[in-house]
């Protein structure tokens, strides 16, 4: 068992090695990304503030991520509730199609959407990226919301109806508050996925790039790398914070319905 623990620690080092480098070189006073380090600087972070194209990309990405998260979560609520509460013929096939993007190579989703949009003569833009991102985020939302809806006793809603509430008001008074932590964590996860997603954005974006597409463009220029490192540090930090919040809400949901904690996402 000791060797297994050692292996686990080495594995964690392997997992964290790349992102551990981010802050190291983000604060390194040198344009070449190599050891030994040259000294401490905040210059790369300051430079981030002076690039209008970057700011535009960030804003664009935020708008896309918020829209995608909202739409994906709404669709996710519908699918998760239908899947956990009702039995209907063809359920497996229908939910299978909705979950398909989880295992489909992203490039396939991207090119197939691109072909259809171009054939229909529709202009590419942020909204086409949203269309694609919703497709990618919905399965994740469903996976999170499924566990929220599943842990819900069916008789809770029946009890509310029995006590005089209508179907809708019992959903609003009982189900919604109980799955709210799941909804919030679904919003955060979908937001994070959309913010990071590159391939679909790369194919479907119009003239305004998203943040990952902007970064992709900068990777070709070696002198821009330290700035990208600084940007990456901020992004990782933001992701971790969002994720921690999502995890907090998920756990609160678990505690609220009073069941045992079965572990993390997915």
């Amino acid at each position: 068992m000791k060797s297994l623990r050692l292996y686990a620690i080495l594995y964690l080092i392997f997992l964290y090695a790349p992102i551990a480098l981010l802050p190291i070189f983000a604060f390194n006073d040198g344009t070449v990304i190599a050891f030994p380090l040259k000294g401490f600087t905040l210059e790369w972070f300051k430079e981030l503030l002076t690039i209008p194209a970057l700011h535009a990309a960030v804003l664009n990405s935020l708008i896309i991520a918020v829209s995608s998260a909202l739409i994906a979560t709404c669709l996710g609520i519908c699918a998760a509730r239908a899947g956990t509460r009702f039995a209907f013929p063809g359920k497996k096939g229908i939910l299978g199609l909705i979950m398909l993007p989880l295992v489909l190579p992203e490039i396939i989703v991207a090119v197939s959407l691109l072909v259809v949009l171009l054939q229909l003569g529709l202009p590419l833009g942020s909204w086409t990226v949203v269309l694609g991102h919703v497709l990618m985020c919905t399965p994740f939302s469903i996976a999170i919301l499924n566990s929220a809806f599943q842990s819900l006793d069916v008789s809770l809603e029946e009890a509310a109806i029995d006590l005089g509430e209508t179907r809708w008001s019992s959903f609003r008074l009982i189900t919604l508050p109980l799955v709210m932590p799941g909804i919030i964590s679904s919003l955060l996860i979908a937001f994070t996925i959309s913010l990071d997603e590159f391939i679909i954005a790369f194919f479907l974006t119009g003239t305004n790039p998203t943040l990952p597409v902007y970064i992709w463009g900068q990777l070709r220029f070696p002198q821009k790398i330290p700035v990208i490192m600084a940007l990456g540090t901020i992004l990782v930090l933001a992701s971790v914070i969002l994720l921690a919040i999502a995890e907090y809400f998920r756990r609160r949901g678990v505690a609220r319905t009073g069941q045992a904690d079965a572990g993390g996402f997915l």
């Binding site: 709404c74 669709l75 996710g76 519908c78 699918a79 509730r81 239908a82 899947g83 509460r85 009702f86 039995a87 209907f88 013929p89 359920k91 229908i94 939910l95 199609l97 909705i98 398909l100 993007p101 396939i108 989703v109 090119v111 197939s112 959407l113 072909v115 259809v116 054939q119 269309l131 694609g132 919703v134 497709l135 919905t138 469903i142």
Partner: peptide, 28 residues
């Protein structure tokens, strides 16, 4: 009926996937 409620609820995500996933894949 239960089945009708299920279809009613699953319709939005299903139509979305049909239009933006199944149809484009067929188009490809």
């Amino acid at each position: 009926s239960e089945a009708a409620q299920g279809y009613f609820l699953v319709a939005p995500p299903f139509l979305y996937a049909l239009l933006l996933l199944a149809a484009p894949l067929a188009a490809i």
